[in-house]
Design a binder for these strands. Sequence first.
DNA 1: CAAGATTGCCGAAACGTTTCGGATTTCGGG
DNA 2: CCCGAAATCCGAAACGTTTCGGCAATCTTG
Lengths: 347, 347
Amino acid sequence: MTTLRDLARHLDLSVTQVSRALNGHSDVSEATRLRVEAAARQLNYFPNRAARRLVSGRSGVVGFVERSFAGIEREEILFATVTGLSEAFSERGMQFVLHLAPKAEGHERDDIIRTYDQLVRGGSLDGFVLTGPRPDDVRIRHLMENSIPFVVHGRTGEAAQHPFFDIDNFGLVLHLTRHLCALGHRRIGLISGPEHFAYVHSRQNGFETGLAEFGAAPSRARLRNGPMTEDFGMVSAVQMFSDPGDAPTAVICGNLRIAKGVYTALSALSLRIPEDVSVVAHDDVVAHARPELFFPALTVTRASLSESWGPLADVLRDAIEGKELKELQKISPYSFIDGASTAPARG
Amino acid sequence: MTTLRDLARHLDLSVTQVSRALNGHSDVSEATRLRVEAAARQLNYFPNRAARRLVSGRSGVVGFVERSFAGIEREEILFATVTGLSEAFSERGMQFVLHLAPKAEGHERDDIIRTYDQLVRGGSLDGFVLTGPRPDDVRIRHLMENSIPFVVHGRTGEAAQHPFFDIDNFGLVLHLTRHLCALGHRRIGLISGPEHFAYVHSRQNGFETGLAEFGAAPSRARLRNGPMTEDFGMVSAVQMFSDPGDAPTAVICGNLRIAKGVYTALSALSLRIPEDVSVVAHDDVVAHARPELFFPALTVTRASLSESWGPLADVLRDAIEGKELKELQKISPYSFIDGASTAPARG
DNA sequence: CAAGATTGCCGAAACGTTTCGGATTTCGGG
DNA sequence: CCCGAAATCCGAAACGTTTCGGCAATCTTG
């Protein structure tokens, strides 16, 4: 293995200067910089990471902690997350490790916190990626208190005080709500995710804001929180539309799986889309279902999950480098794609 | 962060002795060893990995390289592999990183090899886990030539010269074949995996050996190689049983998915299991399908995939530590579980 | 009790890099 | 041609650990 010293001897320079040349420091002449780079290539020199880490105090490794078995329906998304982050960090010269914390009994997230501590000890890991934040997330509080760098996919709330990369959950549901209201709908259903997740709250806020703009009010009966599954969408829709008096005229679905269930339910109830009911959804482009394959084509807001890994990795890198909080909070744009699943509200 | 020096000062010992005490060396008295351990706990000392790696020349990180998008039906198994290995290496104090090599055009596996080199440079990674070996695998040859430690899940052949952890593919198909032959079956079908994988060859050898023991010969028409999917099992079975003259009286399935397809096909062809056709399979316990849920209950050999990650990690650890090749080749046992899907051959 | 063996300990060097402070050379301006 | 400033360069220390060789005290043995 060729070292910096080998290079220095070979070039008749000092180790210092070779190091500075390779790291692009200012006080090294253009000529020697080129000479050094050429020699480095020729002797195929690669910096020893361990040595670099020892002096820099950083390991170049980041992690993602998850409990061992999170349940079947989370597998698909977990897989996408792991592969996406692996790729993103690889491209940035960092390494990404998945750490599966054994499922311990007792305190829900205590063991996960202990895992964070263990991993950060001895400089094994520089930082973490978190997903699925709760409004008041213990993990986030703990990491902040111990000033361990991290980035959250999503955020704890609209005014979160931590590094994150998120989609505009508030905005996109507001957009969908306005779209439906503009068509004359006032009784709108919202079938969203599990109540304890922060993004569900943001979406609900967007929903209520949109309704308020048009002088409408949400109804407890038209609000459903539960797992983002086709089954839940189906059951929720059947329940919502079972009361003919108060049934909604339009439904907003948290994702495409839920929309799938809603389509099934409406078809079974002999309700036509969009004549009887308008349906819209948010498309996170994770499953293999595409909104164009719905019939009639689904109107959606879209923000691709697979495009979030890169920015997420950037934010974590910057967080580790100690940048300002305001540079560490990014919100991704979404697009609105009009389909054929909405129509003006009837009479 | 407390270092060895802090500990040494605190205990009024030398750094050397503290280090040796913590690493359980022989020339340190029991008394001081206990004293040192107590102090380490109290000051909550954790060895700095980077420093340790710098001197030992090892990183404590191992990797698994895969191309970015390997196709849907491989996802399930890839996911199981990644989570299983993550957990196994965590338990051994090592870190496991998944590296997704971008899908490049041109030479099939050239880019993967380059990836191995890059990762091993600068001491980033100590070794690799490989899966799905071919009989003459370029990756394996390359790693051996450059003496980079690795372990293969599976092996290139019966007399492989590399570290591996494998199930007894030859033996288990031999077992199934003998079982069927003992029941009087002579025309037996084998629906197995893609031809280029080494394990498919081993299984085929076991099959032919078993047949030969009973004086039977394999037939080209009763041998199918293809993807391990339900669809392939279904199509293969239909084709095999379409020729009434030469149709088999029993079928061996490469895994449970294939068996599922075979059950479907036989049912559609109005062939009863086991009265008309006996069916057996190998169960790798990866999917959520269980052989008991087949009707009639499937007779299988079983070797759980999820139990292979630990031994696999052990072998790689030992390979990195430079143990002898013969200690680095492990074959896991399988069990035979008799169901209700076989019966004596008729007439 | 002397001589060798054993036990428990220590100082110093090494791993390969970055960085601090200072030294040397070169250059422009008077 | 000289002087200060800018441009390049360098030695040495530091990061935290392991390990090699040696040293002193204690124990064993004849």
